[in-house]
């Protein structure tokens, strides 16, 4: 399986995604510099976390104008897989590949910790090997992960089965105290209508090795590899 990790100025989870994909999951991976207009033919594009363009203006707002994004949009349009993690999710929202927007965390502080997310859909490339209702322990690390959308969009997201992950307790209970950032309807990750583009705030690449405290993120990588190989 061929994977590309996009590198923007200020990306800082690019090497982590590269490591998880190549060294842990044994995918074939290459970095793509944001100024490269041409994206090689790959099965999966990873838009990693970080502070692209230093979060100037708004998270992800400038990165979406990078030359490579045209190719990413084309790649997604052809039905091929894209996963945006954290700042990658924010970029996908700004690029219009996913609906909604990000607000500051409700605490107004950056939050880095392990959280539990519940799998809401498994008819996607990204969750095919995970049971519906299964909870995963995956870290978050963001200042703006408070997902927001209007009522209509939320209804559509649910109607089309686009809400993939929600923040819950370890045993899958929904509640404000399990939602770290105040996101609408406890949303942690969504897909587009065609279900080939996933945006999620938690970092599966940080939960891919037991040594680091959790390997639940591998369930997502395994699902992707199972679907695309």
């Amino acid at each position: 399986m061929k994977t590309a990790v996009i590198v923007f100025p200020g990306s800082n989870c690019d090497t982590d995604c590269f490591h998880a994909a190549r060294d842990v999951m044994k995918m074939s991976v290459e970095y793509i510099w944001h100024k490269d207009r041409d994206l090689p033919k790959v099965d999966l594009v990873i838009i990693p976390g970080g502070f692209s363009y230093g979060d100037y203006l708004r998270t992800g707002a400038i990165a979406r104008f990078s030359p490579v994004m045209e190719s990413v949009i084309k790649h997604a349009g052809e039905g091929r897989a894209v996963i945006g993690i954290c700042n990658g999710f924010q970029i996908l929202l700004e690029a219009g590949l996913l609906p909604g927007a990000m607000l500051r965390n409700k605490t107004l502080e950056f939050i880095c910790k392990h959280v539990w997310i519940r799998t809401e859909e498994n008819l996607t490339i990204f969750t095919g090997k995970i049971d519906i209702g299964e909870t995963l322990c995956i870290p978050i690390a963001h200042g703006e992960g408070n997902y927001y959308c209007d009522d209509e969009t939320l209804k559509a997201l649910h109607g089309n089965s686009q809400v993939v992950f929600r923040y819950t307790s370890r045993d899958g209970k929904v509640g404000d105290k399990f939602n770290p950032n105040g996101s609408r309807d406890h949303i942690a990750g969504i897909v587009n209508k065609k279900k080939n583009v996933l945006g999620m705030m938690p970092h599966p690449e940080r939960a891919s090795e037991e040594l680091l405290g959790s390997s639940d993120g591998r369930k997502i990588w395994n699902s992707i590899m199972n679907a695309l190989e």
């Binding site: 800082n12 989870c13 090497t15 982590d16 490591h19 998880a20 976390g49 502080e109 950056f110 939050i111 880095c112 910790k113 870290p139 690390a141 970092h203 690449e205 940080r206 891919s208 090795e209 040594l211 680091l212 405290g213």
Partner: peptide, 19 residues
């Protein structure tokens, strides 16, 4: 001091073994 360190990204680079 979790109030402190949860504001710090203490996991990026995926090398942190003892938090």
């Amino acid at each position: 001091k979790a109030w402190v360190w949860e504001q710090y990204d203490h996991m990026v680079r995926t090398d942190t073994v003892f938090y």
